[in-house]
Design a protein around this nucleic acid. Structure first.
Lengths: 272, 272
DNA sequence: GCAAAAGTGTTTCGTTTACACCCATGC
DNA sequence: GCATGGGTGTAAACGAAACACTTTTGC
């Protein structure tokens, strides 16, 4: 029996937390790992995490450890399982409460905040300490399940994002391919997205010029397109009002308030 | 600090397990509670559960405690959350790993196995000890989610059950009403149900006769079915065998092997 | 014989899928 | 100017939902 000043009538396991942090770099799903500096599993990679303090909840402990070890302060932390195999830690009996978290794209692309923290593409993860391979599998399964029904994907992108970005994210998490048009439709139909009015800096003049050009183009075009109901500058009739001008890609953002309201409606169903 | 012979350098919380046992009496969903004999919350009702031993997993601990306290030995135990609020137990810091379990109908109707254990309809639960009200809410939410996609409902019925029974079960868990015909169709289409050859008392001959027929049928059928991967024994072709002869209601059972096989097929989707 | 519950198909509707072309941008 | 990727509508197929009557059993 170990020595120490905290004594109990019956043996108590240690309780730790572990955080599986998912990040999306625009192409692939990544996870954030820490290289262990001490035994056991010295030199192995592991999830950020550590012992829960006696005066904090597991959630608080997970957030604290995550911040201490990686500098990340994340909004979404989801408990997905508690792992209690008797010998999962060679030192003593340790039960770990596991969470997954989502880091926005810029964090991932920005590189490693913490010295020993590093992002790994999820299909190319090094051997992990303890039972973290197993935990990772469970985390991934849970993420897959959750993203079907909860709008958590947005937590992996920046505040504003384009549809193709969002689609690539869903595709890498779910491991499937969506038809672009169908994906647009379904996403927009949910009603939880908001089209960002892109910042309208500079030169109205240029804008008008552009507009005029477009307009004449689209009129010519109109005949060629026959019945197609193009989104473009209201075919013949609308004079100066509409303005299409796509730049790099239309930006959207997740409208949380609208989602909260929709959720209340008994027959609202979010599904992917 | 308490005295005791198990000492640690840092404080360790106690770890307990709790079991939310669901049961279905044919009409309503019930849960199994135990009246607490000691403080705290003496006289209150609570979930079966208790301290996890240092040499057992949480699952094992939950099963052990459940058995000790209620006499139930159940097959399905699902971890759905770990609760770690700092003051959830007035005695000491206690983290509880919570499971839900499913008890077959006959257990529920059979009454209380253990002295102090009692079934309560879920809409009419007495005040519970600790944070067990909260835990119950979470368990119910989880059960609702799970039953949409996993064939766990059968664990609440007896080995053999009728469609109306199954439907009532789904309806009480999900709180909705299904059209009887649509429910039949959907359930049968999944391919995981098996129509019970009703207890074959009398005349083994009849059984063997039936059996032989079935077998030859399915071989014949094999060619006729071409690419169709039918799950059914070969019902379509059977000319003379068929005889509806409903008694009380046709009995079905859950075919686990078939389910396991179907699950592998990439485009098998179970949903309710 | 009457009331209550089991059993069974078809039609309608909505959702999901499949699919092609134009435009803008960057090289 | 060419390759890459963004943006848009429609038709066909499929699955879900709505719906009524007959049979059996227990009272």
């Amino acid at each position: 029996m170990e020595e120490g000043k905290y004594c109990y009538k019956y043996p108590h396991p240690a309780v730790t937390t572990d955080c599986v942090v998912f990040g999306f770099d625009g192409k692939r799903l990544n996870i954030l790992l820490i290289e262990r500096g001490g035994e056991p599993f010295k030199g192995c990679w592991a999830f950020p995490g550590g012992f829960m303090n006696i005066d904090e909840t597991a959630e608080q402990g997970a957030m604290r450890e995550l911040c201490e070890e990686t500098g990340l302060k994340l909004e979404y932390l989801k408990q997905f399982g508690t792992f209690s195999a008797v010998n999962r830690d060679p030192r003593e009996r340790v039960v770990t409460i596991a969470f997954y978290a989502l880091a926005r794209k810029s964090y991932v692309q920005g590189g490693d905040d913490a010295a020993k923290a590093q992002w790994f593409p999820i299909e190319d993860v090094p051997p992990l300490a303890f039972d973290h391979d197993y935990i990772l599998r469970k985390a991934t399964e849970q993420l897959k399940k959750d993203i079907h029904f909860e709008p958590i994907g947005f937590g992996l992108l920046d505040e504003q994002f384009t549809m193709p970005e969002l689609q690539r994210l869903y595709e890498s998490i779910l491991g499937v391919h969506f038809d672009r048009r169908n994906f647009y439709k379904k996403m927009l139909q949910t009603g939880i997205l908001e089209e960002s009015e892109e910042e309208i800096e500079e030169s109205e003049t240029q804008f008008f010029g552009e507009h005029k050009e477009m307009k004449s183009m689209s009129i010519d075009d109109l005949f060629g397109r026959s019945h197609h109901d193009r989104h473009m500058p209201a075919p013949s009739a609308t004079p100066p009002t509409e303005e299409p001008r796509r730049r790099k890609g239309t930006k959207f953002s997740f409208n949380k308030e609208r989602y909260e309201r929709l959720k209340e409606d008994k027959n609202f169903r979010l599904e992917f």
